[in-house]
């Protein structure tokens, strides 16, 4: 009995002592993670929490913040005359931009993949705007769209009678979408082109031997095979387009009127022009909810059109 106990005791002691090597590893891990943990806590975790808390206050940068419960949200949904138009603008932008972006980039990707030579150079050309500052892009396009500028010159020469895009209530958003498309199709073009490159040539050859037309080969084989990538591109594009800001800040400042004011622009305006930090935070959370909802909706939708092998 006593012997057994003594053995058990020494085992416990040695076990404790034995884990020193593992503990050393834990300590190393702690020091390696420390810079990241400090940064992430200070600049990611704290801001996320702060953002929630702020959205329940009426803080205006100067003065003491006061807890106001759901007042910000209630005001947003029921009293703020700008809110619903802003939501509508955001959804309008996202929907039109998303659809056009996917169609154009997929078209370009397929077109590029049909080439025998120079594929990579075409890819680089369409990709270029992705690596250039959105602000610079927007400024160049603003010059193109300026009254009496190049765009008006072209429409005038073709005898198309259009009002100036940037100053027209209806067309201003179209100008923003054109610029966004020019800047944004490149990434998806390369993404989809890469996916097409990965479709094994044997599939296409087999289909050709089976007598499938080029049309059928595209719709029945290539498209289903790259549908997971298509889905990935669609989700990512939707998430970024709901946050649109740079182009609008440069080209229209939300105008004319509030024709191009989006959620991203509202957050900036309320937060950094009116300094309504609490109110702007609640808009940010509405945006987050919309991003989550749209993403969830796409995941639900994907079951109907995305094909995964196995």
């Amino acid at each position: 009995m006593a012997v057994v106990e003594r053995i058990a005791a020494t085992r416990a002691v040695t076990r404790k002592r034995k884990n020193r090597l593992d503990r050393g590893e834990g300590r190393t891990a702690f020091f390696f993670l420390l810079p990241s943990l400090i940064g992430v806590t200070l600049f990611l975790v704290v801001p996320i929490i702060a953002s929630v808390v702020l959205s329940f206050t009426n803080w205006k940068l100067l003065g003491q913040p006061q807890f106001v419960g759901f007042a910000n949200y209630i005001k947003l949904f029921t009293a703020d005359p700008q809110f619903w138009p802003v939501v509508r603008n955001t959804l309008f932008f996202t929907f039109e931009y998303l659809v056009l972006n996917i169609i154009i980039s997929l078209g370009l990707a397929v077109w590029i993949s049909s080439l025998k030579m120079g594929q990579r150079w075409f890819r680089v050309i369409f990709f270029l705007p992705t690596f250039t500052p959105g602000i610079a892009v927007a400024i160049v396009w603003m010059l193109i769209f300026a009254p009496g500028g190049f765009f008006d010159f072209v429409t005038g020469s073709l005898a198309i009678h259009l009002p100036n895009l940037l100053t027209d209530q209806k067309l201003a958003m179209q100008a923003v979408i054109i610029v966004s498309l020019w800047a944004g199709v490149g990434y998806n073009t390369v993404l989809f082109n890469a996916a097409l490159d990965m479709v094994p040539a044997s599939y296409m050859e087999a289909a050709r031997i089976d007598g499938a037309s080029a049309w059928d080969r595209f719709w029945k084989i290539r498209l289903p095979l790259i549908s997971p990538t298509l889905f990935f591109g669609t989700v990512m594009t939707a998430i970024t387009s709901l946050q649109v800001f740079d182009q609008i800040y440069v080209m229209t400042r939300g105008g004319p009127g509030s024709a191009t004011a989006t959620l991203g622009y509202s957050i900036f305006q309320k937060g950094f022009q009116n300094f309504q930090m609490g109110y702007a935070s609640s808009i940010a959370w509405v945006m987050f909810a919309m991003i989550m909802a749209l993403t969830a909706f796409q995941f639900w939708l994907q079951r109907k059109w995305v094909h995964y092998d196995n």
Binding site: L44, V46, S51, L54, L242, S281
Partner: peptide, 28 residues
């Protein structure tokens, strides 16, 4: 490196990738 809670911390890191940058502008 082995340390307690490693996988949970990694999941937490991954979760932060979901937060859009523009939301953090104000608190930052």
């Amino acid at each position: 490196l082995k340390f307690p809670g490693r996988d949970k911390l990694l999941m937490a890191y991954l979760a932060t990738l979901m937060v859009p940058g523009i939301m953090l502008i104000i608190p930052l």
